[in-house]
């Protein structure tokens, strides 16, 4: 967990996919409400760049999304988390995990 989405780098998100994530949700403060002025705006641009990369390499740009809410919106956070989780369930395992699962099955067979 990062204390501020302004610390998000493209590489960190991509490493999550290398680590086996099927999707990554980035949750930042409301736009215009950043304690550091532009941290969440920068994060949004970085998430978009990662989305473009994932699309270009066949993993799918829709597997990373950014949400914005305030620290007091616990219910909304849960709703966003459920929404994103369902969205990734619908997409199914990423191509990376499909390849890895196939290899694992071959080993156990």
């Amino acid at each position: 967990m990062l204390p501020c989405t302004g610390r998000i780098e493209e590489a960190i998100i991509l490493q999550a996919f290398e680590g086996g994530a099927d999707g990554v949700m980035v949750v930042g403060c409301l736009e215009g409400d950043c304690h550091y002025l532009s941290g969440n705006i920068r994060a949004r641009a970085r998430v978009q760049r990662v989305s473009d990369i994932l699309e270009s390499i066949g993993i799918g740009g829709d597997r990373v999304r950014m949400y914005n809410l305030s620290a007091g919106e616990g219910a909304k956070f849960a709703a966003y988390a459920n929404e994103f989780s369902e969205h990734i369930d619908q997409l199914g395992p990423s191509i990376i995990n499909q390849v890895r699962n196939t290899k694992a099955e071959q080993v156990t067979a």
Binding site: E9, E10, A11, L14, Q15, F17, E18, I53, L54, S56, I57, G58, I59, I96
Partner: peptide
Amino acid sequence: QVLSSSLRLA
């Protein structure tokens, strides 16, 4: 870092 991750994933 970004290019390397992207290439490994691809």
